[in-house]
Write a protein that binds this DNA or RNA. Sequence first.
DNA 1: CAGGAATCGGCGATTACCTCA
DNA 2: GGTGAGGTAATCGCCGATTCC
Length: 256
Amino acid sequence: MHNYHNMLDHMEYTYSAEAAGEVETYSSTTTAASASAMRKKKNKNTRRFSDEQIKSLESMFENETRLEPRKKLQLARELGLQPRQIAIWFQNRRARWKSKQLERDYNILRSNYNNLVSKFDALKKEKQALLLQLQKLNDIIQKPQEQAQSSTSTQVVKAANSMDSESENGDTIKCEAEVKLSPSMERSEHVLGVLSDDDTSIKVAYFGMEDEPSLLNFVDHADGGSLTSPEEWSTFESDDLLAQSTSDFQWWDFWS
DNA sequence: CAGGAATCGGCGATTACCTCA
DNA sequence: GGTGAGGTAATCGCCGATTCC
């Protein structure tokens, strides 16, 4: 709509070849066809900026990536270039910087991602080791209880028998049997909890949580590794979700 | 004061040309 | 010497912000 201002800008443009004496100023009355012809001629006259010019432009760019109009005019005078050329150079320079920055950002992201992947793998292995350790502990605890339970059952049978035969003393014998039975039954419920795949439920169900903090500590630091710190765990709230994503779909595959 | 036209400068995409392997 | 790739100055078309009337 109102883009012609750019056309005017471009047409009134005078190029660096002017420095060599061939000043060419395009007027706003130039037709499109002749402008095209002149552009071709202009392009033939196009020369790269000198090292000194580039050096000045670069040092200016280091200070500020966008030039104020006044500074642009001043720099143009100093370097013997047109203000438009200065503006274009800064424009192209910003584009190059942005492109490089994108590349740098990409490399940083890729590096972070690789770190996360290796941490995740380490955590998976650690979890497997802990589960294995837990299972072994469970087996160790379960065996003596089974023995105790079988001996208690024998006593209960005996007690029941004696209750039948000695009904006048039955009350004391009956109480003794109940006291011996109940702890082992409760323990067997906890043992069932160990078989769950959920770590939190394991801790709560098996160790009774706050009741036995020493045991919890033992589990948390079983490997002695630094990966078990709360900060590290916070991003992995659901192992199952991550495990699913790794088995069903390698979501990072698109990088490679 | 509101609103449309004009101006300015920036950006992304692209072109034209040059240099170099 | 021809050629393709990469770099860079410049162009084009568009947009948002600001100024002018």
